[in-house]
């Protein structure tokens, strides 16, 4: 079975985020890494292909500056190849444009039995791209899958709900978005890291894929203001000297919680 995983390369979430003051978009000009949320999808894909006893895992990604370091991480985990859509014109693209671009990249690889995405990225977290991508591709989908099995040509998944979960069945080809923790992502081995350096990354522009308009021109939105949120008044911070619990007790008493 052939699986295509959508991966996003994002600024290191451990570093403080910043907005570009001229465009008010998230700064993505530094080194980008594989979004940790996507490592679950990559691992899931590798396990499903392994169980099926054949096929391969491919990656699609979109980045404004030709960055590949995050893709190399996923290739080192075991993915076979990648399509990177990299184009300065993509800056400012909304979620719908992103879905159209990724759909074209999925089509460029072709032959996918399953497309996997995370539920949302860790830097922009619009959370709509997987389902939008399914609609553009004309595929059925199961979003927020927390357990996935393939039984012949049927996908069986547990889908998160507000009250618990649903068991869902869906014919392949299909798209799923997987929650964090659905599988334990492997660490790339030294051999995997070395092998990843020579795996093919097909770098294309939005124009190559025939997607137009993209970027600001294609986005039906305009940032009108950026403001500081009202700050909470500073609280009382104390070192625990063994009596810290008593502070909490009196705080709760004052609020009449106890």
């Amino acid at each position: 079975m052939n699986v295509i995983v959508c991966v996003k390369q994002i600024p290191d979430p451990a570093l403080p985020g910043a907005l570009d003051s001229s465009t008010n978009t998230l700064k993505r000009d530094g080194k980008l890494i594989l979004d940790e949320s996507d490592s679950y999808g990559v691992e899931m894909a590798l396990q499903l292909v392994d169980k099926a006893g054949g096929g391969e895992v491919s990656l699609v990604s979109m980045a404004p500056n030709g960055e590949v370091s995050g893709l190399r991480t996923a290739l080192a985990m075991g993915a076979a190849k990648a399509v990177l859509v990299s184009d300065p014109a993509l800056q400012g693209s909304d979620a719908l444009t992103t879905a159209r671009v990724l759909a074209a990249a999925v089509g460029r690889i072709g032959g996918a039995d399953l497309v996997i995405a995370a539920t949302e990225s860790s830097d922009g977290y619009t959370g709509t791209v997987p389902e939008q991508l399914a609609e553009v591709l004309g595929l059925p989908s199961v979003t927020f899958a927390k357990h996935v099995e393939i039984d012949g040509s049927t996908l069986k998944a547990s889908r998160q709900t507000e009250d618990g979960y649903d068991e869902v069945e869906c014919p392949l080809p299909a798209l799923i978005s997987v929650t964090a923790g659905v599988v334990e992502p492997r660490y790339p081995s030294f051999k995997g890291i070395m092998a990843a350096k020579s795996k093919p990354v097909d770098t294309v522009t939005a124009g190559d894929l025939g997607v137009d308009p993209v970027g600001w021109a294609g986005a039906g939105q305009q940032i009108s203001d950026v403001a500081k949120a009202p700050e909470r008044a500073a609280g009382e911070i104390v070192e625990d000297d063994g009596e810290g619990f008593a502070k909490i007790v009196s705080f709760l008493e004052n609020l009449k919680v106890i």
């Binding site: 909304d94 979620a95 719908l96 879905a99 977290y125 619009t126 959370g127 709509t128 791209v129 997987p130 389902e131 939008q132 399914a134 609609e135 553009v136 989908s141 979003t143 927020f144 889908r159 998160q160 709900t161 507000e162 986005a219 039906g220 939105q221």
Partner: peptide
């Protein structure tokens, strides 16, 4: 919600309209 997010996303493609979330 899980349900409404799916509907919102699909509708955005059907109508060709942007979505703003969160």
């Amino acid at each position: 919600s899980y349900e409404a997010r799916d509907v919102l996303s699909r509708l955005s493609v059907k109508l060709g309209k942007t979505v703003l979330t969160n």
